[in-house]
Amino acid sequence: MTLQSMTGFARSEGSSGRYRWAWELRSVNGKGLDLRLRLPTGLEALETELRDIAARNLSRGNIQAGLSLSASEAKLEAVVNRDALDAVLLLKRDLGDAVSDAPLSFDTLLSVRGLVEFREPEEGTDAQDARNSDITAGFVAAIASLKTMREREGASLFAILSGHIDKIEQLTHIIEADPSRQPDQIRARLTAQIALISDGNSGLDRDRLHAEAVLLATKADLREEIDRLNGHVVAARELLGSGVPVGRKLDFLAQEFNRESNTICSKSNASAVTAAGIELKVVIDQFREQVQNLE
């Protein structure tokens, strides 16, 4: 399965017998698969099969699927209500001399409510089944077209997200290689800070100061955060190339990226590292925003 976006549009139309039908499908972002069907009266029985078709092809997205159905003009047939006709004739006979004994005219019979009804011929079961089958096939075609559009959008997202991951990796390497993280730089900075604090304060325990400084340096070390960021970069690339729906997993990974960048910014004791950490947070935010569009 190719990477898919959750946004798209598709239309499918055709005819069956004297009917013309048209499907319109619209897809937007959603936490799961939510298919909202609008079917003309009388076609409700198709809903279960249509939902199964959608579930086999899509895993996430809010899908609105509307079906329009129209019938071409058909010849009408006249249906005589025999019971009503018999009742009219019986009434005329019972009234006898009270009414004219002339035969009832055709116009008079037509004016009697319910005596004659003009309606379209009823369709047979075979014709209905053929129509429903064609409409279902049209839905399959519309779903396939929607997938194609979502996959095209997914290809664009793949390029964008890959660029964000490359930038995250680049910034992680910048942070890792920053001179402020080198042992001699850390040692020189701590020595200067200890000298500044202890200057003129002979009562301070220099050994205790050195121990506290080492502890602070350990807490400020970024090795674990850098290693985790590098691991997340590898995981993100594997997910993008897996060919399965990965939107939720990448969203979780974006949260992990953000957590590490926050920790780096809070631990940083160098302006260059802080600047790279802030830029890292910006890129991660852009990455997560795009991930929201993935299936």
Rank of each mutant, 00 (worst) to 15 (best):
S105G: 13
K92E: 12
V79G: 06
L171K: 02
L115P: 00
I197V: 15
A211R: 10
I160K: 13
A87V: 05
L109E: 02
A130N: 01
E169N: 11
A78E: 10
L90H: 13
L95E: 14
R119M: 01
F139E: 02
L209T: 02
V116T: 03
Q193H: 13
V140Y: 05
R82Q: 14
S133D: 11
R113P: 09
D83I: 10
L91M: 14
A177W: 05
I197R: 02
R82H: 12
R187D: 13
H210P: 01
A195R: 11
V88E: 08
N201V: 07
A155Q: 13
G163E: 01
Q170K: 10
I168N: 00
I194E: 00
E169D: 13
A188E: 11
V112S: 03
Q193E: 15
L161A: 04
R181L: 01
L161S: 04
N201G: 05
R131K: 07
L85Y: 02
F158N: 10
R93H: 15
L90M: 12
E77Y: 00
I160G: 08
R189L: 07
D199N: 09
A188Q: 08
D94W: 10
D83C: 09
S133R: 14
D178G: 04
L91C: 13
P179H: 03
R119N: 06
L91V: 12
Q170N: 06
T191N: 07
I197T: 10
G154R: 02
D134R: 11
D97N: 10
A159Q: 14
I160C: 11
A192R: 12
A213V: 05
R206L: 14
Q193L: 15
K167D: 07
L171W: 00
P103S: 13
R181I: 06
A188K: 06
D83P: 02
G114P: 00
F158G: 06
A137T: 07
D166R: 06
R206C: 05
A159K: 12
I194Q: 05
L115E: 03
M149P: 06
Q185T: 15
V79P: 01
S111K: 09
S100C: 06
H173F: 08
E117C: 00
L209N: 01
T108V: 10
H164W: 04
A127Q: 05
E77M: 06
K167G: 02
E176A: 11
A78I: 05
L85M: 09
V80T: 09
L76F: 04
P179V: 07
N201Y: 07
Q193A: 15
F158Y: 14
S111F: 03
A84C: 15
D178L: 01
S145W: 04
R208M: 08
P179E: 02
I168Y: 00
S198H: 08
D199S: 12
